[in-house]
Design a binder for these strands. Structure first.
Lengths: 327, 327
DNA sequence: GTCACTGATAACTACCTCCGATCAACACGA
DNA sequence: TCGTGTTGATCGGAGGTAGTTATCAGTGAC
């Protein structure tokens, strides 16, 4: 026998082999795995064997009755999934290059933004990117971020900063909060209201989980309010405004919501804060390194233009917002 | 002609194709690229063409006199490199599984650790992992971290915390600092020295760039010292100690360095600080997700045992320190 | 205009992957 | 104890892939 080292020729594994191994690692069953990736069981069996040969490592412990991964197989399965994920991103980006602004775009929007911005967003997408199939999901921030990380959503429209690693924010605009009060409220309809006035108000807030609730609480805290201002809660801004109209207290509304929500009642007054008014920033959020990031940034730029008709301060185009090299 | 969509059959690209494209993207020259990856120019040319077909994207703008990447090619080249990097990690991990603790291990060590710990480290590696070819590089922290990120080094032995993203620290032990003084110094040889004493001392420090210098400065700052204590600097601990022996001032030494550095002179006294004494933590550092991470953690565990003979406080084995599933 | 050098193409070979059919091992139940 | 169904492995052949060498064709320098 040859002494040498144990090194045989080790050709590059093929992506088919890696996909086969990943499928086996997932299903722990050759026939199911073969069906899942659309190849015959013998082919898959051979592919896994070939991969084991080329790596020189036993990946799968086979019994005719049970399949399980070897310790090495467990570790290498992680690497394999990473490779396939990168390949997936490559293919997706190629597809995006080949036909930008086509196919499905799963957009997640928070409830305190959706009703007021979606008309603008939908019109923009329809007019400018007619081949884009926009699917809108209205959820709260935490759920949206989960969906983004899990690949269930592609693009989020929500309030920032998030401070979540792996998520890139593309700011769109800042909008002030305004104070909505009943007709007989002493601050009703005033301008230049100092923030300190928040210390004394009977403020109505949204339910837990809405980022707008947290923002309002934060604003109160900054204004020097120690106690929690909550006296009641509502599941939506519309309900909240109706409670105000009924005289139960005041509330803070983002300016984009003002027109829609206050036009239904003549029992309301709107007060604006002294400069600088409390505000929130609305942005798009994507997975950092998303394959179609260039498209999303282009979409963000288009959105900024379209949103200038609203009572908001559109942020400047950020220097990285251009598609590098795109026409 | 068929109307349909523009979609043709799009087979998975092969890793050979990706490697070919990456080589072209790097060299911008087909023959050079072909030579670099050890294949013929026509084969490489065909591979790139096949990749372009399967992606449906023009990646390379070819003139017979000049080759450059299309904008899409630039973007996809990044993805391609990411895929190949993951594949490389996969192969490396397979190799590590196949033959753990063999091959080259490029270890970087900081100068204030190297002379005192290397004897232990080298003996351990030689005895326990004889097939491991340890290559030691003595550099300062910043240079080591660069080398780790660039792939020039595999494993670092240095003071932590670093707080560098992408670098995982595997703590080994804590060691106290001791105060080295000339014979006639009022604090000479005392025990239980309060930290506040540092406020008044004429302290000698290493040159800029040594983390030990920064640690000493930090300790002085915490002790309430406002001014910089630097009066002179030295390039190595040996020099520093000779300066102390010459009566130019005092210095802080890590306890592991004490025996070696003070045995050459009888003009020195060693004082210890009151509990808790100022200390530094020494750790191994690796790239997060390094292919051979399991081996490095095993090595760290072995090192902890071996280092118990030194005057240090070995940290507990961290819960993630075991090779998952290894015998 | 010529020449050197570029990437593309042609023709051929070797190998590889895939499939359908079949085999051998095992667990379970009558 | 012996079928029986299900498991993964193996076999043989068709088809395609990917590599080679030899050659072609376009381009810029001189």
């Amino acid at each position: 026998m040859t002494v040498g080292n144990a090194g045989k020729r080790r050709p590059l594994p093929s992506l088919s082999q890696l996909r086969a191994f990943a499928a086996v690692a997932e299903h722990l069953h050759f026939r199911d795995a073969a069906a899942a990736i659309g190849m015959s069981q013998p082919a898959l069996s051979g592919a896994v064997s070939a991969l084991e040969d080329s790596l020189g490592v036993t990946l799968v412990e086979r019994t005719t009755r049970r399949v399980l991964l070897s310790p090495a197989g467990e570790r290498l399965a992680v690497r394999t999934r990473a490779v396939l994920a990168e390949v997936g991103a490559l293919l997706e980006e190629a597809e995006a290059v080949r036909a930008p602004f086509t196919g499905v775009l799963r957009l997640g929007v928070i409830p305190t933004v959706a009703p007021y911005l979606l008309p603008t967003v939908l019109r923009l997408v329809h007019d400018r990117y007619p081949a884009l199939d926009l699917q809108v999901h209205e959820e709260q921030t935490a759920s949206l971020l989960d969906g983004l990380a899990a690949g269930r959503l592609d693009l989020l429209l929500l309030a920032v900063p998030l401070g979540v690693p792996g998520v890139t924010e593309i700011p769109l605009f800042d909008e002030d909060f305004v104070l909505v009060t009943p007709l007989d409220h002493p601050l009703g309809g005033r301008a230049g209201i100092p923030r300190e006035a928040l210390k004394e108000l009977n403020l109505l807030l949204l339910d837990e989980g809405h980022c707008l609730r947290d923002q309002a609480l934060e604003i109160c805290r900054e204004a020097g309010r120690a106690d929690a201002p909550v006296t009641t809660t509502a599941a939506g801004l519309s309900t909240l405004v109706q409670l105000v109209a009924g005289g139960l207290g005041c509330t803070l509304l983002p300016r984009t919501a003002l027109k829609v929500e206050t036009s239904r009642s003549n029992q309301l007054l709107t007060g604006s804060f002294a400069h600088p008014a409390p505000s929130r920033r609305i942005a798009l959020a994507i997975r950092t390194g998303a394959a179609r990031a260039a498209e999303y940034r282009q979409l963000a730029a288009a959105l900024r233009s379209a949103l200038r008709v609203l009572p908001v301060r559109v942020v400047d185009d950020d220097p990285y917002g251009r598609t590098p090299g795109a026409a």
